[in-house]
Amino acid sequence: MPGPDAEGRTTVTVQRELAAQEVSDRLAIRELIDAYAHCADRRDAAGQMALFTEDTHFVVFMDATSDQPSQELHRRDELAPVFGNLNSYDTTTHFNGQSTIEVDGPRATGESYCLAHHLSISASGERTLMIASIRYLDTLAKQADGNWLFAERKLMVDWTETRRTTP
């Protein structure tokens, strides 16, 4: 886990040995993170919603530096309009980057990075690409069946860029 050493320099500790269960949990969590992006790009709102606990807490910060969220939801069934909003784009592509996960039995926390590309095409054929640099701050819960779900997901938009593109 990254952190400062005694002289203030950032250091990284790499775990050399992990128990088989933790390896399995970490892989399952990474697959959960990737499934979220896959469902988003396929416009599978129902599939995306199924990745969350019933009493999930989903918080959107369109400006990651703000103390106040842009949107806050408290149940899985409230997520449909958020995920449905992706239908306003002609296509999206979410590239997942690094993630840091801490597993503690049936709970886990983590941070993962994503570059989300949102393509819009106007009626006149003008193409606009909006790219968002996103960090997700997650709390995850292992279910009785062994599957991991998002118990809380904070979507933090660090920056966006919008530009015209050519076909």
Rank of each mutant, 00 (worst) to 15 (best):
V59W: 03
V59P: 06
V60C: 04
V60Y: 02
F61Q: 04
F61H: 15
F61C: 04
M62T: 15
D63W: 02
D63S: 05
D63Y: 05
A64S: 15
T65G: 11
T65I: 05
S66G: 05
S66L: 08
S66F: 08
S66P: 04
S66Q: 08
D67S: 14
D67Q: 13
D67T: 13
D67C: 00
Q68F: 07
P69Y: 09
S70W: 03
S70Y: 03
Q71R: 15
E72L: 01
E72D: 12
H74T: 14
H74Y: 15
R75H: 15
R75I: 11
R75Q: 15
R76W: 05
R76Y: 04
R76E: 04
R76M: 08
E78Q: 14
L79W: 12
L79R: 07
A80H: 14
P81Y: 02
P81N: 08
V82M: 15
F83L: 13
G84Y: 02
L86C: 01
L86R: 08
L86H: 11
L86Y: 14
S88T: 09
Y89C: 09
Y89A: 13
D90L: 04
D90C: 04
D90S: 07
T91N: 09
T92E: 07
T93D: 09
T93Q: 14
T93I: 13
T93V: 14
H94L: 06
H94P: 10
F95Y: 14
F95R: 14
N96G: 05
N96F: 02
N96Q: 11
N96V: 13
G97H: 11
G97Y: 01
G97A: 01
G97V: 00
Q98G: 12
Q98F: 01
S99R: 12
S99V: 05
T100N: 03
I101A: 01
E102D: 10
E102L: 08
V103C: 10
V103L: 02
D104Y: 00
D104E: 12
D104C: 09
D104A: 13
G105M: 03
G105K: 04
P106A: 06
P106M: 03
P106N: 10
R107P: 00
R107E: 13
R107L: 11
R107F: 05
R107D: 13
A108W: 05
A108D: 03
A108T: 10
A108I: 03
T109F: 02
T109Q: 11
G110F: 05
G110M: 05
Y113I: 07
Y113H: 11
Y113W: 06
Y113F: 13
C114S: 03
C114V: 04
C114T: 03
C114G: 00
L115E: 08
L115M: 14
L115R: 14
L115D: 09
A116H: 00
A116L: 04
A116P: 00
L119S: 07
L119F: 05
